[in-house]
């Protein structure tokens, strides 16, 4: 067997526990040994499961280590890292959780995992300065509605029918306080400098920010927010989101 075929055979045996050991492996005593091959199988699965536990610590706390490990192993079975850049691993773990029947009772679990996935993406995101408000102030008022803002590379929104920000926040300390209310929450995850911040923001500000992050100009984004909440305060939302570090600047080409 050539090298390509033998590595394919080795990989298939690694990935599928029910398959026989790969052809051609042996030991010093001249006999292949399943316990030895199992070390490689175990390394692959434990390595990936551990990587997920590191990235999704609150998700793990919410379901317990045993449940989490079982869920992570099932995910890892069909989802290998796309590249050796293992820091990206688990980007679609939240979607897997959302469809994972045994966790269906915990409707908020996938959204908490989405928040945690966004946290690590923000941690490794490109560094960027923040929007300079004086640039915005210099824009003629009639040009403002057509202006598009560039999202900060680290910024992400999680809009959930569950209090995901509060749940996540409650698990940042050793003792988890009881939840006082159970409301929908919109969360902005952003790293303006060295620290990743998790902010619970008003729902209408979230709609506004999401439209802006999607490339909509200020006027259109404000209309979307007004449609959701007539009391939407454009100025306060813009200044507030800016203060949290949500924007990197004005879109190239939109500067007068």
């Amino acid at each position: 067997m050539g090298l390509a075929a033998s590595q394919e055979d080795f990989a298939q045996a690694l990935l599928h526990a029910e398959r026989p050991m790969p052809a051609g492996i042996t030991t010093a005593r001249g006999q292949a040994d399943a316990a030895r091959f199992a070390v490689y199988r175990n390394n692959v699965h434990v390595g990936l499961t551990k990587a997920l536990a590191q990235r999704f610590p609150v998700t793990e706390q919410l379901v317990g280590a045993a449940f989490f490990t079982a869920m992570a192993r099932l995910y890892a079975q069909d989802n290998k890292p796309a590249s050796p850049r293992i820091i990206d691993y688990g980007d679609d773990f939240p979607a897997f959780i959302a469809a994972f029947e045994p966790a269906a009772e915990l409707a908020y679990l996938a959204d908490v995992a989405s928040l945690e996935a966004a946290w690590t993406r923000a941690y490794h995101a490109a560094d960027a300065g923040l929007l300079d408000l004086s640039v915005l102030a210099a824009v003629a008022p009639d040009a403002l509605p057509n202006l598009r803002l560039a999202a900060h590379p680290s910024a992400a929104l999680i809009r959930s029918p569950h209090p995901v920000g509060s749940i996540w926040g409650a698990h940042q300390s050793a003792t988890v306080p009881p939840m006082e209310a159970w409301d929908a929450e919109t969360v902005l995850v952003v790293r303006p400098d060295m620290h990743v911040n998790v902010h619970i923001i008003p729902a209408q500000d979230g709609i506004f920010a999401q439209a802006l992050f999607g490339g909509a100009p200020l006027g259109e984004a404000a209309e979307a927010a007004f449609a959701h909440e007539p009391a939407f305060d454009f100025g306060a939302a813009l200044v507030g989101l800016h203060a949290l570090g949500a924007f990197a600047g004005i879109h190239q080409g939109d500067v007068p």
């Binding site: 090298l3 990989a11 990935l15 490689y40 390595g47 290998k80 890292p81």
Partner: peptide
Amino acid sequence: AWSTHDTGFLNDLLPLPYTDETLAR
């Protein structure tokens, strides 16, 4: 060692046989 496959990165340092073919590779 090797660690790549069609299904993705296998996240371990896997062994290879020592032959003329693997040496050239």
